[in-house]
Simulated assay, not measured.
Amino acid sequence: MSATITIKLNEKLFLRDPEQTELGKAIVKESIRLIDELGFEQFTFKKLAQQITSTEASVYRYFENKHKLLLYLVSWYWNWLDYRISYHTHNVTDAAERLQVFIKILAADPMKEPLTTFFDVEALARIVVLEASKAYLTKEVDNDNRAGLFRDYKSLCHKMALVVLEINPEYPYPHALVSTLFETTRKHLFFAQHLPSLTEVKLEQAGLTSLTSYLNHLAFSAIGTAVVNTQSKD
């Protein structure tokens, strides 16, 4: 049975909560479609307003600028990932197996998904691969950080860093490893699609198994623990 989830984000990301109105939902849904289609640089509030048959002023009532909108979308995606990881690991007691589930979800391997949302999560995942770094590679990163705008990403990294420490309490770089897994995933998905000579990762119809294998190798080699064999499990 599917469950529709509601994600609550830092109120500093928006001027008005878009999930509370039909117009707000339309703004988010169409912004995902447009950014996925056009790219963040070519995306504008004017183009967005035209697509939802509204005005730029109405969009600005929800988001201060398109950078804040991108931060909102990326933060929403990290929360969505957190929900999925929590769901698929809540009965998993072994820390190494939990880390493997995290890696499988991070690498976008297909899994039975009981969680639903009104957003196009597949399009949003593509946006995260291409655009997520632009959310923090700015001159305003320190101010945005003090405002808590990266809280969801940092919280998820910290949660998984604690799993790393369960596996090996002596490992000295748990947060660096987990953030590297996040960044590596996005970079190699991009390389596999656009710059394939830079990676051995291949885009595969039945799931990104080569990326999953690489991330497992990267993580468990660093931690100094053998990968758990969970191939026969759902």
Results as ranks from 00 to 15, higher is better:
residue 1 M to H: 11
residue 7 I to M: 11
residue 7 I to A: 15
residue 14 F to Y: 15
residue 14 F to C: 10
residue 22 E to K: 15
residue 28 V to K: 15
residue 31 S to A: 15
residue 32 I to Q: 12
residue 32 I to F: 12
residue 33 R to C: 00
residue 36 D to K: 15
residue 37 E to I: 01
residue 39 G to M: 08
residue 40 F to Q: 08
residue 43 F to V: 04
residue 51 Q to Y: 09
residue 53 T to N: 10
residue 54 S to R: 11
residue 57 A to L: 07
residue 59 V to M: 13
residue 59 V to S: 08
residue 61 R to P: 08
residue 66 K to F: 07
residue 71 L to T: 05
residue 73 L to H: 09
residue 73 L to P: 06
residue 73 L to T: 09
residue 77 Y to M: 14
residue 78 W to R: 01
residue 78 W to A: 08
residue 81 L to K: 05
residue 81 L to Y: 13
residue 83 Y to A: 11
residue 85 I to E: 04
residue 85 I to P: 03
residue 86 S to N: 13
residue 92 V to L: 12
residue 97 E to G: 01
residue 98 R to C: 03
residue 99 L to P: 03
residue 99 L to R: 03
residue 101 V to K: 03
residue 104 K to I: 03
residue 104 K to S: 10
residue 105 I to G: 04
residue 108 A to E: 14
residue 109 D to V: 06
residue 110 P to L: 01
residue 112 K to N: 14
residue 115 L to Q: 03
residue 117 T to N: 15
residue 117 T to C: 14
residue 118 F to C: 10
residue 119 F to N: 13
residue 124 L to V: 12
residue 125 A to R: 01
residue 126 R to F: 04
residue 126 R to Y: 04
residue 129 V to I: 11
residue 129 V to G: 00
residue 134 K to Y: 01
residue 137 L to V: 12
residue 139 K to R: 10
residue 140 E to S: 08
residue 143 N to Y: 08
residue 143 N to K: 13
residue 145 N to H: 14
residue 146 R to Q: 14
residue 149 L to Q: 01
residue 150 F to R: 00
residue 151 R to L: 12
residue 160 M to L: 05
residue 161 A to L: 01
residue 161 A to K: 02
residue 162 L to G: 11
residue 166 E to C: 03
residue 168 N to R: 00
residue 169 P to R: 02
residue 169 P to E: 01
residue 172 P to D: 05
residue 177 L to N: 02
residue 178 V to F: 00
residue 178 V to T: 04
residue 180 T to A: 15
residue 180 T to P: 00
residue 180 T to W: 14
residue 181 L to Y: 01
residue 185 T to K: 02
residue 190 F to K: 06
residue 193 Q to M: 03
residue 196 P to R: 04
residue 196 P to H: 04
residue 196 P to T: 02
residue 196 P to N: 02
residue 196 P to M: 00
residue 197 S to L: 11
residue 198 L to A: 10
residue 201 V to Y: 11
residue 203 L to H: 06
residue 205 Q to K: 15
residue 205 Q to S: 11
residue 206 A to M: 09
residue 207 G to C: 09
residue 209 T to E: 07
residue 210 S to G: 06
residue 217 H to G: 04
residue 218 L to E: 08
residue 225 T to L: 02
residue 233 K to F: 12
residue 233 K to Q: 11
